[in-house]
Design a protein around this nucleic acid. Structure first.
Length: 290
DNA sequence: GCCCAGGGCAGGA
DNA sequence: TCCTGCCATGGG
């Protein structure tokens, strides 16, 4: 089955897919030439589908592998999720205007960059963000792969591909399993508690997709999640389309130390003042400055 | 064995 | 608000 989504005027599939590292984390997977992004996805009806996403001029083409036909509701859910993943509703014109005035940011405008791939659900994006903290990227990949393989649902009997686990699936195992078998280390408690609070209705995360909610409200909610500190907060806000907080982590410090401070790192307060001329777009300014 | 990795938490000034 | 010790895993 095939579905088509009309794209905004400015859209660069390869950049939108690969400008952020999420495409390397399962259940995302891709061909070597990056012509398509693939993903196993569980729909709210319980049906599990394989999605192949690619661009054809002004359209996004979705090939859906499925044993049975999809209902209209299921098709709509797929379109809604993919539109969210590629931020098709986001307006980059103000950011592009600022880039046009900056000689180092010209190619952001000419190449239609700025979109950073995100997951269909906030739960998945928060889990993945927590799995990037205090570790290396290669460990993030292996922790995510373990998490998806050991707790997700298999696409088909002969497939090595899985869905991203639901919070309910996390709660079916204990913290020891997350710690020692999935090898999440001390992050296992954070992720278990996150899943628990979602299932118990303490956190209702997907309402935060609503751009009408103020960033301050989102910040207050995110700070309540154990395992989410300043760096993770900034990354989650970015994933929600809010770019005013900088991700001040070791990588950020390494970058600005070399580029702006000739090897001598200033105090923390000063680091948070960087890129402030970019206003609501500080995160993107830093991201594409690297 | 030791050190560190795209941090965060609790405790204490 | 800022600083310190500690957290648990695997790779160099």
């Amino acid at each position: 089955m095939k579905k088509v989504i009309e794209l905004p005027e400015k859209f660069n599939f390869k950049a939108a897919t690969t400008d952020h590292g999420w495409y390397m984390l399962p259940p995302f997977h891709s061909n070597d030439d990056m012509s398509a992004l693939n993903r196993v996805e569980k729909l709210s009806t319980g049906k599990i589908v394989m999605l192949h996403i690619k661009q054809d001029n002004a359209k996004l083409i979705i090939e859906i592998e499925d044993k049975k036909t999809l209902t209209n509701k299921e098709s709509e859910e797929i379109i809604r999720k993919i539109s969210w993943m590629y931020r098709l509703d986001e307006d980059y014109s103000a950011f592009y205007k600022m880039c046009a005035d900056n000689k180092d940011m010209q190619e952001i405008v000419t190449e239609n960059r700025g979109r950073l791939l995100r997951s269909p659900s906030i739960f998945e994006d928060i889990v993945k963000t927590i799995l990037t903290t205090n570790t290396t990227w290669s460990r993030t990949i292996s922790m995510t792969t373990n998490f998806v393989t050991l707790l997700g649902e298999r696409y088909s009997d002969d497939s090595g591909l899985f869905t991203f686990p639901t919070p309910e699936a996390v709660l079916k195992k204990d913290r020891d399993f997350l710690n020692q078998t999935v090898k999440l280390g001390y992050r296992s408690d954070y992720i278990y508690e996150l899943a628990l609070n979602i299932v118990n209705g303490v956190y209702d995360l997907d309402v935060l997709k609503n751009p009408e909610i103020s960033t301050e409200d989102v910040v207050l909610k995110m700070k309540k999640i154990k395992g989410v500190g300043p760096y993770a907060l900034s990354n989650i806000l970015m994933l929600l389309g809010r770019y005013d907080y900088l991700p001040v982590d070791s990588e950020f410090k390494k970058h600005v130390k070399n580029k702006y401070f000739s090897g001598e790192l200033p105090p923390n307060a000063q680091l948070h003042q960087l890129y402030k001329e970019w206003g609501e777009y500080k995160f993107l300014a830093y991201w594409f400055d690297r």
